[in-house]
Design a protein around this nucleic acid. Structure first.
Lengths: 183, 183
DNA sequence: ACAACCATGTAAGTAGTTACATGATTTA
DNA sequence: TAAATCATGTAACTACTTACATGGTTGT
């Protein structure tokens, strides 16, 4: 589970409150490790209990902003975690299941769904390309920035991949059920 | 959640018991929607309760093989589900979090981990390419088979994508911490 | 001072994971 | 007939999701 360490990373980059972190997640790390604000609040509480982060001021809970910053123990934990090997988690791609199902039961209306998906992937690709132009292509490439850029590029390649798959899916789905075509 | 419908699809392709399905999952659909045998047994029980599948013979539970087949209601449910639109689930890629963390705290030993990962992706790519040659490239391309092939191709493209990312990651990670390089 | 919104939090439910248990079947 | 293995199942736990609630703050 990466959420605690994603939060530690975000807090190194800049201290912040739960809501600020939630917002920053939506704009950057969240594209690669999504989290809702409830997850974030819960996890911040755990990180504090573990002694990895510290909340400043405003000690009473509800309604008051709690500013967190990372502690040395948190940096140490993050360093420990980064070099831990984890096997890549197997894919979980619902669309693949739908395509197999379509293959099994014959023409449905999956076509429509894929058109919608394609739009979403196009939007995201545009968003990522904008981020790339703004944050990376025009600035000197330090080691840190190249790593961040690499993460973004992985996202861009993903979106391009799905656009490719969607295009081919649309082509295959319009085949008549009994046709035998050369690929 | 796709597991029940992945199982229904597998049962259309061929009836089978829980353990057989688990094995078949490991070889095909499971590459895109992983499930443990416990999940599969639980889900088969639910599918039976819903009236979507039926277990033949051997009525007592433990130890005895229970052969399942899909019922008409199950086919109907599958058809209903296939055309339901679902937004693509956001990525959850632990390696991306690690790379961001590395960017934040400076050189660690992430290098090693990525070398291991690269091997795993190479293995999987080889496996997929073998499946492709055996099951698709040498057979006539019906609509059904083209759809199944497409799913496999998506997996191949994924693995190739990760090999690309890994290669660039290794390059960037070996940069000295204070260097400013042209990309 | 009232409404709208913001920041934090609680609660309940689902999916998935890990460890283990038990009844049948096969094999030495 | 005992041991190993197979097929199914139970239990406990964690991460995640969704809906909602409460206390502050801001604007009219």
């Amino acid at each position: 589970m990466s959420l605690p360490h994603a939060l530690l990373t975000a807090l190194i980059e800049r201290p912040g409150s739960g809501s600020e972190l939630a917002e920053r997640f939506d704009r950057s790390i969240g594209h690669f490790w999504h989290a809702t604000h409830q997850q974030i609040y819960r996890e911040l509480a755990r990180l504090e209990a573990a002694g990895w982060v510290q909340a400043l001021a405003a000690e009473s809970g509800r309604g008051r902003k709690r500013q967190y910053r990372i502690l040395p123990a948190g940096r140490k934990e993050l360093r420990r975690w980064v070099i831990q090997h984890e096997d890549p988690k197997p894919l979980r791609e619902e669309l693949m299941v739908r395509l197999r199902a379509e293959a099994a039961i014959g023409p449905t209306g999956l076509h429509e769904d894929i058109l919608k998906r394609r739009l979403q992937h196009q939007d995201k690709l545009e968003l990522y390309r904008g981020m790339e132009a703004r944050d990376f292509l025009s600035k000197p490439a330090t080691r840190e920035r190249r790593l961040q850029h690499l993460v973004l590029k992985a996202g861009i390649l993903q979106e391009e991949l799905w656009l490719e798959i969607a295009a081919e899916a649309l082509e295959v789905l319009q085949m008549p059920d009994d046709a035998t075509a050369r690929e």
